[in-house]
Design a protein around this nucleic acid. Structure first.
Lengths: 233, 233
DNA sequence: TAATGCGTCATTGTATACAACGCAACCCGA
DNA sequence: TCGGGTTGCGTTGTATACAATGACGCATTA
């Protein structure tokens, strides 16, 4: 369960264009994966030449990948010196979840006024699916929850219909992905998370933006707490 | 007065690293300036080779500049086809100012709980300076207001002490900079804007985050209206 | 011994040459 | 005349060679 506390740290495609088969994209994914898997620890010094050899491309696409990763906040570029993998502090965590609370609650509020029946159906189905994974008695399989959770939050963004807001959220969610390794969801945490999802759907059904917004804010802040409060289960 | 309705469209250095003397940065500034000055209209197709010659550097730094500008939202990269200058719709305007309202009001709220006496003094001085420019009877000189206004909003971000929130705001403010040409501030608009600034300082002095946040939200939304409501003066 | 200046080296920054891709025009055949 | 295939061209994508920059170590000197 060490992997992917993705239930609250979704990992949608951030839309920054990492999907293609261009060498630059392959380098981007490769380096990103390496950082997220702590293959290079925070503070590590990455050299373009070395990354180029590891990825099997030349330095040019590696440079582009490093620039993108720097914009993502995963590493820092120091002129004439190279790239340094970012370290994460408590303050970073607070800032990131603060932003997520602000932005995602906004999305929930907008979605409440724009959701259509078929959206509510799909959101409900996602809740069913997630609850089925959590409640089947076995050890919780996060690799099955994560995509469902991602889809849930992503669908809310689609419903809200604010592209820039969505883009911002994807960006801010991208930042601390490397931290998901350290999140520890107890069964209680998961149950609460599921309840939040369900309640958000209810708020949308009632077309109550304030309600949806408030639950979402709680949802995100509860996710923040998972990084500090010791696991009890 | 056509230029720079910067009073509500600040143009702080977006922190994305356009300051250095590297060829890539020169290309970045050059292209950015060109787009902002409508030298290339929305929809225009930019070719790397041509930009390289205009800037006096090779294609490599131009490519880097284009990638950054794409991340800024000023243009769009189409694989194997090139860069297209972004057009702006009403929806874009609504989304951008919506985001600004959310983020900047958040900043104001945070700043209220963290402002120290010397901050309040500086903010007050900035208000004095801006009011002096507006109230001196001459035609309003936006080139003098804009830096003051930028400093005001930037200082609030510093006071709030949330680096990521600040970064997000700079990013979202960057987007519609090209639209500032079309903003038309009447004297009424400017007077209101000045009053908002002053009121924000008062709210900070009272350490009332809700107050500060509300005024800031109004401030931004009033700025949005300048793009639609006809000038009356 | 500590500080300072210099030289070397590693690494990034830039330019250029080449490959791959996509679009469009054109030609040929039905 | 219309449709499909093909060829050519323009543009981006990638690799590689070269220049410039800054850091580090070492020797020199006070």
């Amino acid at each position: 369960m060490a992997d992917s506390a993705g239930a609250l740290a979704p990992q949608w495609d951030n839309g920054l264009g990492g999907g293609s088969n261009r060498a630059a994209d392959r380098a981007y994914r490769f380096i990103r994966e390496g950082i997220l898997a702590s293959r290079w620890p925070p503070g590590a010094h990455l050299r373009e030449q070395e990354l180029a050899e590891l990825t099997g491309v030349s330095r040019t696409p590696v440079r582009e990948a490093l620039r993108r990763l720097s914009a993502d906040g995963l590493l820092q570029l120091i002129p004439n010196l190279g790239a340094k993998v970012n370290a994460w502090t408590i303050q970073d965590l607070d800032e990131i979840f603060g932003l997520r609370a602000t932005l995602e609650s906004q999305v929930a509020g907008l979605a409440a006024s724009r959701a259509e029946p078929q959206h509510l159906v799909e959101l409900g189905a996602l809740c069913d699916a997630m609850e089925a994974v959590v409640g089947d008695g076995n050890a919780v399989d996060f690799s099955r929850i994560t995509p469902l959770n991602d889809r849930f939050h992503g669908l809310l963004i689609d419903i809200a219909g604010d592209r820039r807001l969505g883009q911002m959220i994807r960006q801010v969610v991208e930042m601390p992905l490397v931290l998901r390794t350290f999140a520890r969801y107890s069964r209680r945490d998961l149950a609460r998370s599921m309840n939040h999802h369900r309640e958000i759907v209810e708020a949308l059904t009632a077309r109550d933006g304030e309600w949806a917004s408030s639950v979402m804010r709680a949802h995100v802040r509860a996710g923040r707490a998972v990084f500090t409060v010791p696991k009890t289960e």
